[in-house]
Design a protein around this nucleic acid. Structure first.
Lengths: 224, 224
DNA sequence: CGGTTCCTTGATAACGATCAAAGGCCGTGG
DNA sequence: CCACGGCCTTTGATCGTTATCAAGGAACCG
């Protein structure tokens, strides 16, 4: 199960969770759970990337975040206990293990350290949500696009021979647009502008950051 | 301490916290803690309203949320353990009690129920942050203004004889604008438009919702 | 190869930001 | 009690960014 919150567990507790857990595989586009479904437990992403999105009553929706391997999904809905607030959809081939409510609840009651791990996890998610809020309110599409690139580079970036960072995006422009609160056309134009300024190179879903420092400078210098 | 997460505590644990806590009073505009300060514990709002805001390196800032009586401040920074991510400023006269790290940590280790309470609290904050994200991305200033009004009416609204809801705003337009990611001028104009449509009446910081259902309809019908 | 889906490109329009100025509100001090 | 200064709010005019609409092109897949 990798080195996640579960490290906090004693061997016998871990065994109880391990026997109860269900491992599932999803292909790109498949739904892991749907907004409104009853919350039967939590989901841990073991590999792949999962999009978390929220849909409004009128049908419009927004992608809230991307959960990478090692992240836990639906835990906040679990503790909030009123069904899933969001939907989770696989962005590529994904392995998820589902942990039913009961063994989890029991482990939490017997091991405070596990609770701390979840609290830290929750703090991190809130931090990211707040950061997105701030970015959306204060920065223009170009800056938000850069921020998205920067946040994706950690998990999806790879340095090449030229000292550049190649980021293989796990999402379509359309979805990227949804993440930063813009239209696909605007993201397309923003990336084009960045390419013209020789800050990045774009080729399909592969974006190469030519000079990380220059890109960071660009964020600082941004007019809004 | 009202009926907050602390209800989960046994009498002797409660006493330990009670003796360690420090009650403080703040006047409008005073700072409870500053972004970047070391996190010495958590703060519970006992009365009044507290603004939580985040400032960027360039000086621009955004108000993230308003913490009302009964809410806990800084807990996510406490669990994230790297200083306060945000600043907290009193919007009006406020009573806050500060609970130092040590007794809190100890109570959490000995009482899993307290951990659950904080997890639920965190889930709620994340839910609200997500909702703000969605609103900011999908709705125009008028709709966001309405949403802010609706969210404030629960704590600051009061029904009058005519069946209307009078909402006494705890913040200036300027701050309201910062919350919904807009400029004060835009909020002013949005409220004016709502008044012209006879959905609300505005008089200083008192906003009267003339018909809640009509206002909700307006949100649904909104063009974006 | 035809279909779908996604991306680009261009033209236009609208929403909200920005700038500037004037008017209220309130506390302070004469 | 009135005058003053500061801060917030309103109002008007203009500008810019981004959404929107529309059409053409590229990539992918059966």
């Amino acid at each position: 199960m990798g080195n996640t919150e579960w490290c906090a567990l004693a061997p016998n507790q871990l065994r109880a969770i391990d026997t109860a857990k269900v491992v599932r595989h999803y292909r790109a586009g498949e739904t892991i759970y749907n907004q409104g479904d009853a919350c039967t437990g939590i989901h841990c992403v073991e590999s792949g990337s999962v999009a978390v999105r929220f849909m409004e009553t009128d049908g419009s929706s927004k992608m809230l975040r991307i959960a990478e391997a090692g992240r836990t999904l639906g835990y906040s809905d679990f503790f909030g206990k009123s069904g899933y607030r969001t939907s989770a959809v696989a962005l590529n081939d994904v392995t998820v293990c589902h942990i039913p409510a009961e063994p989890l609840h029991s482990a939490l009651t017997h091991n405070p350290a596990l609770g701390f791990a979840f609290l830290a996890h929750g703090a991190e998610d809130l931090r990211e949500a707040d950061a997105q809020n701030v970015g959306q309110a204060l920065h223009n599409v170009r800056a938000r696009t850069v921020q998205l690139l920067l946040s994706l580079k950690d998990k999806h970036g790879e340095a090449n021979d030229a000292g550049e960072i190649e980021v293989k995006l796990p999402l379509a422009w359309q979805q990227a647009a949804e993440m930063i609160g813009a239209r696909p056309e605007s993201v397309s134009r923003a990336l084009q502008a960045l390419a013209e300024d020789e800050l990045v190179k774009v080729s399909g879903r592969m974006v190469t950051i030519m000079d990380l420092d220059l890109l960071l400078d660009d964020l600082e210098t941004a007019q809004d």
